[in-house]
Amino acid sequence: MKNRDWHKQLRDITHWLRKILTWSSFVVLFLVSGLFVYHVVDIKIMNNDKVNYKPEFALYSILTGSMEPNIRVDDVIFTRKINAPDELKVGDVITFVSENPHTKGAIITHRVESVNQTVDGYSYVTKGDANETKDNAPVSFEGIIGKVIFKIPKLGILRKIVSNKFGWLFLVLIPATFVILVDLIKASRAVKLNKTAETITKQKKTPDIRDVSELKQKLLEKRTKLSALDEMELPRLRN
């Protein structure tokens, strides 16, 4: 009895674990898909207006190793818009539009090394963690897109996959295939259970051959006894 209860508990635990894993996969895929849709729209808007476009939140893939080992190539960073210069301090990592003549207009993510305040406003000296020297041109407050608040390691690899024309199809096919497989497995198990139930029902309705033979034997024995009694009673009646 205890062994049977243990097996039942194990089946229940396995059932709930499968449910949790299934729904977790759906949630992760949904969130990742939503993030990439937002990322694609965000990049398209920014390409049209890099100077004035400053979203409240944004995400970017890291393309170079200038911030290693803290931020590596193919990591995805999330930034938050900075509304006032005093929100930034030395040591913060910021994403900005480069004002360096050699890389003008490029979107760069580096760490703030120093903050300078002049009559013209605030400017920030930046440097990549892996670079030996500071950036040549200071960053104006107007050129800052946002402050890095967290990162997701290697999520940029997935972004590369979905960036081509087959990528979105791939992103849709994975969850769709997963859903179909789960439904097929459930349907297959349901069919097997129904067949098993029908077989058990038929077996219960069909009498056992040995039981029938025993019943016939008992009836024959009773008939023989009755015949013997009749033969014993007949002489008495004649007398």
Rank of each mutant, 00 (worst) to 15 (best):
S163Q: 05
L158S: 14
F178T: 04
G146P: 00
K147R: 14
K44E: 15
K204C: 02
T201A: 09
T199S: 13
K19E: 03
P69C: 07
P85M: 11
V125K: 11
L59R: 15
L59W: 13
Y124E: 00
V76F: 13
L229C: 07
T224W: 06
D183A: 15
R189D: 13
K8A: 06
L226Y: 05
T199Y: 08
S163K: 02
F141Y: 01
Q217I: 03
D42F: 10
R210I: 10
G146H: 04
S213H: 06
I180A: 06
K216G: 08
I185R: 13
Y124S: 05
F166C: 04
Y38G: 09
G121Q: 07
A228K: 00
V212C: 06
I43C: 07
L29V: 07
P101M: 01
P153A: 08
D12P: 01
V73I: 14
E198Y: 09
K195F: 07
F178I: 04
L220I: 08
L229D: 11
G128N: 06
G146K: 03
D230G: 15
S25Y: 09
G105E: 00
S98D: 12
I77H: 09
Y124N: 03
L193C: 08
S98R: 01
R72T: 15
L173V: 05
T118Y: 01
T64P: 13
V191I: 13
E113A: 08
H39M: 15
A176P: 00
W16C: 00
S188I: 06
I200A: 03
K89V: 11
M46E: 14
K151Y: 07
V51Q: 10
V125T: 10
I174D: 06
L229H: 05
R236T: 06
V90M: 03
P138L: 12
T126I: 04
V119G: 06
T196G: 10
P175V: 03
V191A: 11
I43S: 10
I152F: 10
T64K: 06
T126G: 08
K202E: 01
I157A: 14
P235I: 00
G34S: 02
P55Q: 07
F30Y: 04
T14F: 13
E142K: 02
V40W: 08
D183W: 10
P101A: 03
V212Y: 01
S227P: 06
A58T: 14
T79K: 00
E198K: 15
D74E: 12
N83K: 09
I13P: 02
H39W: 14
I149E: 12
M232Q: 08
